[in-house]
Amino acid sequence: MKEIVVISGKGGTGKTTIAASFAALAENAVMADCDVDASDLHLILRPVIKTGNRFFCGHEAEIRKNDCISCGACLANCRFEAVKMNGDVAGEAEFSIDASACDGCGACVYLCPVKAIDFHSRYCGEWFVSDTRFGPMVHAVLAPGAENSGKLVNLVRMNAKKTAEETGGNIIITDGPPGIGCPVISSVTGADAVLAVAEPTLSGLHDLRRIMELARHFGIRTLVCVNRSDMNTGISEEIEKLSAESGAVFAGRIPYDDEINRAHDGGISIIEHGKGESVGRIREVWNETRRNI
Protein backbone atom coordinates (compact mmCIF):
# COMPACT_ATOMS: atom_id res chain seq x y z
CA MET A 1 0.00 0.00 0.00
CA LYS A 2 1.30 3.43 -0.97
CA GLU A 3 0.53 6.85 0.43
CA ILE A 4 0.80 10.10 -1.53
CA VAL A 5 0.23 13.44 0.22
CA VAL A 6 -0.72 16.54 -1.76
CA ILE A 7 0.74 19.64 -0.08
CA SER A 8 1.37 23.25 -1.02
CA GLY A 9 3.19 25.47 1.46
CA LYS A 10 1.03 28.44 0.49
CA GLY A 11 -2.74 28.14 0.73
CA GLY A 12 -5.05 28.46 -2.28
CA THR A 13 -2.75 26.92 -4.88
CA GLY A 14 -5.16 24.16 -5.93
CA LYS A 15 -4.21 21.30 -3.64
CA THR A 16 -7.76 20.06 -3.21
CA THR A 17 -8.44 20.33 -6.97
CA ILE A 18 -5.54 17.95 -7.55
CA ALA A 19 -6.40 15.60 -4.68
CA ALA A 20 -10.03 15.31 -5.89
CA SER A 21 -8.79 14.64 -9.43
CA PHE A 22 -6.45 11.94 -8.18
CA ALA A 23 -9.36 10.35 -6.31
CA ALA A 24 -11.28 10.22 -9.61
CA LEU A 25 -8.30 8.80 -11.52
CA ALA A 26 -7.05 6.23 -9.03
CA GLU A 27 -8.31 2.71 -8.73
CA ASN A 28 -8.81 1.05 -5.40
CA ALA A 29 -7.90 4.14 -3.39
CA VAL A 30 -8.67 5.42 0.08
CA MET A 31 -8.92 9.20 0.48
CA ALA A 32 -7.80 11.14 3.55
CA ASP A 33 -8.46 14.82 4.14
CA CYS A 34 -5.76 16.06 6.51
CA ASP A 35 -6.58 19.74 6.02
CA VAL A 36 -8.65 19.56 9.19
CA ASP A 37 -8.47 23.31 9.75
CA ALA A 38 -10.35 24.17 6.54
CA SER A 39 -11.28 20.92 4.88
CA ASP A 40 -12.74 21.18 1.38
CA LEU A 41 -12.27 17.77 -0.22
CA HIS A 42 -15.69 16.65 0.99
CA LEU A 43 -17.34 19.36 -1.13
CA ILE A 44 -16.24 17.46 -4.23
CA LEU A 45 -16.21 13.86 -3.00
CA ARG A 46 -19.53 14.29 -1.11
CA PRO A 47 -18.87 11.50 1.41
CA VAL A 48 -21.69 9.57 3.05
CA ILE A 49 -20.66 9.24 6.67
CA LYS A 50 -20.61 5.72 8.07
CA THR A 51 -19.08 6.36 11.49
CA GLY A 52 -18.32 9.56 13.37
CA ASN A 53 -16.12 10.01 16.44
CA ARG A 54 -15.65 12.95 18.76
CA PHE A 55 -12.11 14.16 19.31
CA PHE A 56 -10.94 15.55 22.65
CA CYS A 57 -7.58 17.10 23.27
CA GLY A 58 -6.16 19.00 26.21
CA HIS A 59 -8.28 20.74 28.82
CA GLU A 60 -10.18 23.91 29.59
CA ALA A 61 -10.98 25.52 32.89
CA GLU A 62 -14.46 26.47 34.07
CA ILE A 63 -15.34 28.28 37.29
CA ARG A 64 -18.24 26.84 39.29
CA LYS A 65 -20.07 30.03 40.19
CA ASN A 66 -21.72 28.58 43.30
CA ASP A 67 -18.41 27.57 44.87
CA CYS A 68 -16.41 30.64 43.84
CA ILE A 69 -15.51 32.98 46.70
CA SER A 70 -14.50 35.73 44.28
CA CYS A 71 -10.94 36.03 45.65
CA GLY A 72 -9.37 36.71 42.25
CA ALA A 73 -6.51 34.20 42.58
CA CYS A 74 -7.38 32.79 39.14
CA LEU A 75 -7.05 36.23 37.55
CA ALA A 76 -3.67 36.78 39.19
CA ASN A 77 -2.36 33.38 38.11
CA CYS A 78 -3.54 33.33 34.50
CA ARG A 79 -0.92 34.36 31.94
CA PHE A 80 -3.23 34.04 28.96
CA GLU A 81 -5.68 36.84 29.79
CA ALA A 82 -8.41 34.22 29.95
CA VAL A 83 -9.95 35.19 33.31
CA LYS A 84 -12.62 37.86 33.03
CA MET A 85 -13.63 39.95 36.02
CA ASN A 86 -17.13 41.34 35.97
CA GLY A 87 -17.17 43.99 38.68
CA ASP A 88 -14.56 46.19 40.33
CA VAL A 89 -13.75 44.66 43.71
CA ALA A 90 -12.49 41.18 44.51
CA GLY A 91 -14.89 39.56 46.96
CA GLU A 92 -17.86 40.87 45.01
CA ALA A 93 -16.93 40.64 41.33
CA GLU A 94 -17.95 37.67 39.23
CA PHE A 95 -15.06 35.76 37.68
CA SER A 96 -15.35 33.64 34.55
CA ILE A 97 -13.06 31.95 32.02
CA ASP A 98 -12.98 33.00 28.37
CA ALA A 99 -12.70 29.58 26.73
CA SER A 100 -11.28 31.04 23.52
CA ALA A 101 -8.31 32.46 25.42
CA CYS A 102 -7.80 29.56 27.88
CA ASP A 103 -4.61 27.65 27.12
CA GLY A 104 -5.51 24.69 29.32
CA CYS A 105 -2.48 25.04 31.61
CA GLY A 106 -4.47 24.41 34.78
CA ALA A 107 -2.76 27.16 36.83
CA CYS A 108 -6.09 28.58 38.02
CA VAL A 109 -7.40 25.08 38.75
CA TYR A 110 -4.47 24.08 40.98
CA LEU A 111 -4.09 27.44 42.66
CA CYS A 112 -7.76 28.08 43.46
CA PRO A 113 -7.90 28.13 47.29
CA VAL A 114 -11.40 26.60 47.38
CA LYS A 115 -11.01 24.27 44.37
CA ALA A 116 -13.95 25.91 42.61
CA ILE A 117 -12.56 25.45 39.10
CA ASP A 118 -13.25 22.38 36.95
CA PHE A 119 -10.79 21.16 34.34
CA HIS A 120 -12.74 19.52 31.50
CA SER A 121 -11.39 17.64 28.52
CA ARG A 122 -11.59 20.03 25.61
CA TYR A 123 -13.82 19.08 22.71
CA CYS A 124 -11.67 19.72 19.64
CA GLY A 125 -13.54 18.24 16.72
CA GLU A 126 -14.81 15.13 15.04
CA TRP A 127 -13.50 12.58 12.57
CA PHE A 128 -15.38 10.34 10.19
CA VAL A 129 -15.06 7.22 8.07
CA SER A 130 -17.22 7.57 4.97
CA ASP A 131 -18.03 6.16 1.56
CA THR A 132 -17.62 8.12 -1.66
CA ARG A 133 -18.16 7.24 -5.31
CA PHE A 134 -14.38 6.68 -5.56
CA GLY A 135 -13.93 4.57 -2.45
CA PRO A 136 -13.66 5.06 1.31
CA MET A 137 -12.68 8.41 2.78
CA VAL A 138 -11.45 9.43 6.23
CA HIS A 139 -11.91 13.08 7.13
CA ALA A 140 -12.32 15.40 10.09
CA VAL A 141 -13.44 18.81 11.25
CA LEU A 142 -11.61 20.77 13.88
CA ALA A 143 -13.95 22.60 16.27
CA PRO A 144 -13.99 26.35 15.54
CA GLY A 145 -10.93 27.96 17.09
CA ALA A 146 -9.58 24.66 18.45
CA GLU A 147 -5.88 23.86 18.49
CA ASN A 148 -3.83 20.73 18.07
CA SER A 149 -4.75 19.84 14.57
CA GLY A 150 -1.53 17.79 14.36
CA LYS A 151 -3.03 15.17 16.60
CA LEU A 152 -6.28 15.08 14.65
CA VAL A 153 -4.27 14.73 11.44
CA ASN A 154 -2.57 11.70 12.98
CA LEU A 155 -5.93 10.15 13.78
CA VAL A 156 -7.13 10.67 10.21
CA ARG A 157 -4.02 9.08 8.73
CA MET A 158 -4.04 6.13 11.12
CA ASN A 159 -7.65 5.40 10.28
CA ALA A 160 -7.09 5.85 6.54
CA LYS A 161 -4.37 3.19 6.79
CA LYS A 162 -6.62 0.92 8.79
CA THR A 163 -9.44 1.40 6.28
CA ALA A 164 -7.10 0.65 3.38
CA GLU A 165 -5.96 -2.55 5.10
CA GLU A 166 -9.54 -3.63 5.73
CA THR A 167 -10.80 -2.87 2.22
CA GLY A 168 -7.72 -4.00 0.32
CA GLY A 169 -7.00 -0.47 -0.92
CA ASN A 170 -3.62 -0.09 -2.62
CA ILE A 171 -3.13 3.67 -2.45
CA ILE A 172 -3.99 6.41 0.05
CA ILE A 173 -4.50 9.86 -1.47
CA THR A 174 -4.15 12.54 1.17
CA ASP A 175 -5.16 16.19 0.85
CA GLY A 176 -2.65 17.89 3.15
CA PRO A 177 -2.89 21.15 5.11
CA PRO A 178 -1.23 24.35 3.88
CA GLY A 179 1.85 25.83 5.57
CA ILE A 180 4.91 24.14 6.99
CA GLY A 181 3.90 23.85 10.65
CA CYS A 182 3.00 20.99 12.92
CA PRO A 183 -0.11 19.71 11.03
CA VAL A 184 1.91 19.47 7.79
CA ILE A 185 4.64 17.49 9.51
CA SER A 186 2.00 15.17 10.95
CA SER A 187 0.61 14.72 7.42
CA VAL A 188 3.82 13.79 5.64
CA THR A 189 6.01 11.80 8.03
CA GLY A 190 6.27 8.23 6.86
CA ALA A 191 4.39 8.81 3.58
CA ASP A 192 5.77 7.33 0.33
CA ALA A 193 5.76 10.61 -1.57
CA VAL A 194 4.53 14.18 -1.47
CA LEU A 195 3.27 16.19 -4.42
CA ALA A 196 3.81 19.91 -3.89
CA VAL A 197 1.33 22.06 -5.81
CA ALA A 198 2.96 25.42 -6.45
CA GLU A 199 1.61 28.61 -7.96
CA PRO A 200 3.90 30.80 -10.04
CA THR A 201 4.09 33.86 -7.77
CA LEU A 202 6.90 35.29 -5.66
CA SER A 203 5.16 34.16 -2.46
CA GLY A 204 4.44 30.79 -4.06
CA LEU A 205 8.09 30.28 -4.92
CA HIS A 206 9.16 31.37 -1.43
CA ASP A 207 6.79 28.92 0.23
CA LEU A 208 7.64 26.08 -2.18
CA ARG A 209 11.30 26.33 -1.17
CA ARG A 210 10.37 25.89 2.48
CA ILE A 211 8.04 22.95 1.85
CA MET A 212 10.66 21.19 -0.31
CA GLU A 213 13.21 21.67 2.41
CA LEU A 214 10.79 20.08 4.84
CA ALA A 215 10.23 17.06 2.56
CA ARG A 216 13.99 16.67 2.11
CA HIS A 217 14.48 16.85 5.87
CA PHE A 218 12.19 13.87 6.31
CA GLY A 219 13.68 12.00 3.35
CA ILE A 220 10.36 11.84 1.48
CA ARG A 221 10.31 11.52 -2.29
CA THR A 222 9.05 14.83 -3.65
CA LEU A 223 7.14 15.66 -6.80
CA VAL A 224 6.31 19.20 -7.88
CA CYS A 225 3.65 20.54 -10.22
CA VAL A 226 2.76 24.13 -11.11
CA ASN A 227 -0.88 25.17 -11.13
CA ARG A 228 -2.08 28.16 -13.19
CA SER A 229 1.34 27.99 -14.84
CA ASP A 230 0.47 30.50 -17.56
CA MET A 231 -0.08 33.26 -14.97
CA ASN A 232 3.68 33.82 -14.88
CA THR A 233 5.69 31.59 -17.21
CA GLY A 234 8.99 33.02 -15.93
CA ILE A 235 8.35 31.90 -12.35
CA SER A 236 6.90 28.60 -13.63
CA GLU A 237 10.22 27.92 -15.32
CA GLU A 238 12.04 28.87 -12.15
CA ILE A 239 9.94 26.34 -10.21
CA GLU A 240 10.77 23.63 -12.74
CA LYS A 241 14.46 24.47 -12.41
CA LEU A 242 14.27 24.56 -8.62
CA SER A 243 12.71 21.09 -8.48
CA ALA A 244 15.34 19.66 -10.83
CA GLU A 245 18.15 21.19 -8.77
CA SER A 246 16.84 19.85 -5.50
CA GLY A 247 16.29 16.30 -6.71
CA ALA A 248 12.50 16.45 -6.92
CA VAL A 249 10.52 15.03 -9.83
CA PHE A 250 8.78 17.66 -11.91
CA ALA A 251 5.33 16.26 -12.60
CA GLY A 252 3.97 18.90 -14.95
CA ARG A 253 2.37 22.28 -15.54
CA ILE A 254 -1.36 22.84 -15.27
CA PRO A 255 -2.75 25.90 -17.06
CA TYR A 256 -5.29 28.31 -15.59
CA ASP A 257 -8.71 26.81 -16.28
CA ASP A 258 -12.12 28.42 -15.66
CA GLU A 259 -13.75 25.03 -16.00
CA ILE A 260 -12.33 23.95 -12.63
CA ASN A 261 -14.64 26.31 -10.73
CA ARG A 262 -17.57 25.20 -12.88
CA ALA A 263 -16.87 21.56 -12.06
CA HIS A 264 -16.57 22.35 -8.36
CA ASP A 265 -19.78 24.40 -8.36
CA GLY A 266 -21.47 21.25 -9.56
CA GLY A 267 -19.83 19.21 -6.81
CA ILE A 268 -17.68 17.13 -9.14
CA SER A 269 -13.98 16.92 -9.92
CA ILE A 270 -12.56 18.47 -13.07
CA ILE A 271 -11.78 14.94 -14.31
CA GLU A 272 -15.44 13.93 -14.18
CA HIS A 273 -16.42 17.29 -15.65
CA GLY A 274 -14.21 16.32 -18.59
CA LYS A 275 -14.05 19.79 -20.14
CA GLY A 276 -11.17 22.25 -19.97
CA GLU A 277 -7.51 22.50 -20.78
CA SER A 278 -6.40 21.28 -17.39
CA VAL A 279 -7.99 17.80 -17.63
CA GLY A 280 -5.29 16.26 -19.80
CA ARG A 281 -2.51 17.93 -17.86
CA ILE A 282 -3.79 16.72 -14.49
CA ARG A 283 -3.97 13.21 -15.96
CA GLU A 284 -0.30 13.53 -16.93
CA VAL A 285 0.60 14.70 -13.42
CA TRP A 286 -1.24 11.67 -12.02
CA ASN A 287 0.58 9.27 -14.37
CA GLU A 288 3.91 10.81 -13.44
CA THR A 289 3.03 10.53 -9.76
CA ARG A 290 1.99 6.90 -10.13
CA ARG A 291 5.27 6.08 -11.89
CA ASN A 292 7.21 7.56 -9.00
CA ILE A 293 5.73 5.82 -6.01
Binding site: D37, A101, L142, P144, G145, A146, E147
Partner: peptide, 13 residues
Protein backbone atom coordinates in the same frame (compact mmCIF):
# COMPACT_ATOMS: atom_id res chain seq x y z
CA UNK B 1 -3.00 34.05 9.57
CA UNK B 2 -5.22 31.70 7.52
CA UNK B 3 -7.32 28.98 9.07
CA UNK B 4 -9.50 29.14 12.18
CA UNK B 5 -7.17 27.79 14.86
CA UNK B 6 -5.82 29.62 17.89
CA UNK B 7 -3.33 31.84 16.04
CA UNK B 8 -6.30 33.16 14.05
CA UNK B 9 -8.28 33.74 17.26
CA UNK B 10 -5.35 35.57 18.87
CA UNK B 11 -5.05 37.80 15.80
CA UNK B 12 -8.71 38.85 15.54
CA UNK B 13 -9.48 39.05 19.24
Amino acid sequence: PPGTACSFVTSVK
